[in-house]
Simulated scan of single mutants.
Amino acid sequence: MGYGLYLYGILPATHLNPLHLQGLDKQPVQAHKIGPFIFLYSDAQQERYLASRRNLVGHEKVLEHFMQEGFRTILPLQFGLIVQDWEAVREQLIEPHDEQLHQLFEKLAGNREVGVKVFWDETVELERLMAENDELRERRDRLEGKPLSMDAVIAIGQDIEAAMEDRKNSIIQVFQDTLNPLALDWVENDAMTNLMIFNAAYLIPWDAEAKFGEKVEEADRHFEGRLRIRYNNFTAPFNFAQLD
């Protein structure tokens, strides 16, 4: 028994060769044209798909397959989107969002998303801070081995925390100053771990990726290997395909 249609993404209406691709639950990926849009889908075998790593990767692999096949403009749909039939697609997605869908396709045409995540070692950065900041280091050293009031502990702790925050922001500023001018648009997302200090997605022209990658490496060299940088140069443009 099927549970409807699982949607992966939308392409501008174009000719597609026969698809030989499996989606979630090993179901064949198919294409359905509605007006100027082609919807990529497979038959849903579950009423609701859990956001497991396997399912998320399976969803993204379908989109990346078409990008690798030369479809440089693709509008990814959110993971887990199941509709009952194509009339529901028309009524719930196309008709209320027709103008915005066209605007998104114009925005994404010939462009791609890349992602930059920056991690630091907080202990190492604290040690560097103390080595570089004579005033803070001397205050900390003067307190060692002495009975401390709660106010004294709070005061030095707050000052160190503020200095570390300034240090983090100065690192972020280097990446912003280096990368933002190359992008058509960018989104800064929340950090996913305590060690992640920068998590940004950039929309860049498809053919500008090599130059952008060089700038990521330039920012990395600026910090002489202190940071760990995760650069994803090939992903569907989820951050720039948001429907209101």
Rank of each mutant, 00 (worst) to 15 (best):
G2W: 13
G2Q: 15
G4I: 01
Y6F: 06
L7A: 09
G9L: 02
L11T: 02
L11W: 12
L11K: 07
A13Y: 05
T14E: 15
H15Q: 14
L16Y: 04
L16T: 08
H20I: 02
L21C: 05
Q22P: 03
Q22R: 15
K26Q: 14
K26I: 02
Q27T: 03
V29I: 12
V29G: 03
V29M: 15
Q30A: 10
Q30D: 07
A31P: 07
A31H: 11
H32A: 10
H32S: 10
D43C: 10
D43V: 15
E47V: 04
E47W: 10
A51S: 10
A51T: 07
A51D: 08
N55R: 00
L56H: 02
V57K: 09
G58M: 08
H59Y: 13
E60N: 13
E60I: 04
E60C: 08
E64M: 10
H65K: 05
M67C: 04
M67F: 08
G70F: 01
G70W: 02
G70T: 14
G70L: 03
F71G: 05
I74M: 08
L75C: 09
P76Y: 04
L77G: 03
L77S: 09
Q78S: 11
L81Q: 12
V83S: 06
D85P: 01
E87C: 00
A88R: 10
E91V: 15
P96T: 07
H97R: 06
Q100G: 03
L101T: 09
H102S: 04
H102C: 06
Q103W: 04
Q103K: 13
L104M: 09
L104T: 07
F105Q: 08
A109Y: 07
R112L: 13
V114F: 06
G115S: 14
G115T: 11
G115Y: 03
V116T: 07
V118A: 02
V118Q: 01
V118N: 00
D121N: 09
T123F: 00
E125N: 01
L126T: 14
E127H: 06
L129K: 00
A131H: 09
N133F: 01
N133M: 02
R139E: 14
L143Q: 05
E144F: 02
G145P: 07
K146S: 13
L148A: 06
A152C: 09
I156G: 03
G157V: 07
G157I: 04
Q158G: 13
A163H: 06
M164S: 11
S170G: 12
I171P: 08
I172C: 14
Q173H: 11
Q176Y: 01
D177A: 11
T178H: 11
P181V: 14
P181L: 15
A183N: 08
A183Y: 09
D185W: 04
D185G: 06
W186S: 05
W186F: 15
V187P: 00
M196A: 01
I197Y: 05
I197T: 00
N199T: 01
Y202W: 05
L203C: 10
L203F: 02
P205G: 05
W206F: 15
A210T: 15
K211R: 12
F212V: 00
E214F: 07
E214T: 14
A219F: 11
D220S: 13
H222Y: 10
H222L: 13
F223L: 00
E224F: 03
R226L: 06
I229A: 04
Y231L: 02
Y231T: 00
Y231M: 01
Y231F: 14
N233Q: 11
F234M: 06
T235A: 15
P237F: 06
P237K: 02
F240R: 05
A241I: 01
Q242H: 14
D244S: 10
